[in-house]
């Protein structure tokens, strides 16, 4: 089977992000970038499905020149080839991202398209669902388990209140949650091999995608900081403060 997966470049998920004083964006000096953790889960799921069932994994990223690095990570994890659509984050919104990915899907015609549930920079949690609607495909978002049974896919989803199971016909769109798997670390030989794997570079214009944005971020600011609290020395003091100062118990 042929599986399309995403490889979005994001700021280090554990970095404390700061806003530029003029509110036009975030401070990028000294920031590290990584493959979006949810994309790691998506790539792992795709690669292991193909290891079991045969086929090919194609990884796609939309990003500026430096996103190549993260696309290569997906190739080092086992994707066969890459597609790099050049556009910087400020030129994108979820909808345009989805329309570009839908176009890639139409060119590639995979059996399955696995994305991450969310990009940990924008935190939108929209793209997979948008792609599914644009393509008229069934979706299973926030997947924590996936099983291929012949030409159908059983997916367990993490939803409020429990775990839901869906049975989908293929082709389908799945978005990965963190518990779907434990992403492999690329081995050194695979990192080297990935350097030679083919990457097709294009632009949204080449693809004939309308680049009008539907949502624009016009300002960035830091959230209100919490006023500093205190350390109490004993359990007695804690109970006293909660009772007589905060009055919450």
């Amino acid at each position: 089977m042929k599986i399309l997966v995403t490889a979005k470049r994001v700021t280090d998920p554990d970095a404390k992000i700061r806003v530029k004083p003029d509110g036009t964006g975030i401070e990028t000096a000294g920031l590290e970038y990584k493959l979006n953790p949810f994309c790691e889960n998506a790539v792992e799921a795709a690669v292991s499905l193909v290891e079991q069932n045969g086929g090919e994994v194609v990884a796609v990223t939309i990003g500026d020149d430096s996103a190549t690095i993260n696309l290569r990570t997906a190739l080092a994890m086992g994707a066969e080839r890459g597609i790099h659509v050049k556009a910087s984050d400020t030129e994108l919104d979820s909808d345009l991202t989805a329309r570009i990915l839908a176009k890639v899907y139409e060119d590639e015609k995979p059996d399955l398209f696995i994305l991450g549930k969310q990009a940990v920079d924008g935190d939108s949690n929209q793209v997979g669902q948008l792609v599914a609607e644009y393509l008229g495909l069934p979706q299973a978002c926030f997947a924590s388990k996936m099983e291929l049974n012949g030409d159908r896919l059983q997916v367990t989803r993490e939803v409020d209140g429990g775990l839901e199971t869906l049975d989908l016909s293929l082709p389908a769109v799945v978005t990965a949650d963190l518990r779907l798997n434990e992403p492999r670390l690329p081995t050194l030989p695979n990192v080297l091999k990935a350097k030679r794997k083919p990457v097709d570079v294009k632009t949204p214009a080449d693809m004939g995608v309308d680049t009008t944005l539907k949502v624009v971020t016009v300002a960035y600011e830091a959230p209100k900081e919490r006023a500093g609290g205190i350390k109490v020395k004993t359990v007695e003091e804690l109970v006293d403060k909660l009772r007589n100062e905060a009055k919450v118990i």
């Binding site: 979820s94 929209q126 989803r157 993490e158 949502v215």
Partner: peptide, 22 residues
């Protein structure tokens, strides 16, 4: 909620609407 997150982007795509999350 997981319901809203799952459903609303598809509605946005159908309505040709921009969507603001959260």
């Amino acid at each position: 909620s997981t319901f809203g997150r799952d459903l609303l982007p598809r509605v946005a795509a159908r309505l040709n609407a921009g969507m603001v999350s959260d």
